[in-house]
Amino acid sequence: MVRRWVPALVLCGLWWWAVLRLVLEPARAGVVEGAVAAGGWGLSLLPVHVAATARPMGVFDAATGLLRRGAAWIRRAARSWRQWVVR
């Protein structure tokens, strides 16, 4: 467990060092600090909260799911239309 956190903390510290150097000493900061700060910020935009499923969804599975949802929507619409017309 510790082996996973150590690299993350090191990279986090490196990113904060680059950001603070850019903010506090912009004249002495170089390209490396800018690249590290921009790269870390760019990584923060990735959707890392999305987890992979046990079995990746294929095109056939996605199409089947869409068809099932569409068919369910059509059934609900027809049922509500019939209820509205009968009244």
Rank of each mutant, 00 (worst) to 15 (best):
G42W: 03
A52Q: 01
L45W: 13
V19F: 10
P7T: 08
W16P: 04
V6G: 03
L14P: 02
E25V: 09
W17P: 04
A35R: 12
V48R: 09
R21L: 14
A27P: 03
W15G: 02
E33T: 03
W17Y: 15
W41M: 10
W5D: 15
W16S: 08
L45A: 13
L20T: 00
A52C: 02
A18I: 05
L11G: 07
R21H: 14
L20Y: 03
M1F: 13
P26Y: 05
A35E: 06
E33R: 08
L22E: 07
A52E: 06
V36W: 04
P26S: 01
L43I: 09
A37V: 00
G34M: 02
R28D: 12
W15S: 06
A51I: 03
R21D: 15
V19Y: 05
R4G: 04
W41C: 10
P26V: 04
L9E: 06
R4Y: 12
R3N: 15
A52H: 04
H49G: 12
P47F: 04
L9W: 08
L11K: 13
V23M: 09
A8C: 12
V50W: 02
W16I: 14
P26F: 01
A38L: 13
V19N: 03
L14H: 03
V31W: 13
L20C: 03
A35V: 14
G34T: 05
V31M: 12
R28A: 14
L20N: 00
A35Y: 06
S44D: 09
V6H: 08
G30T: 01
L24R: 13
A51G: 02
L45H: 11
L46C: 12
M1P: 06
V6Y: 08
G13Q: 01
M1H: 13
L20M: 08
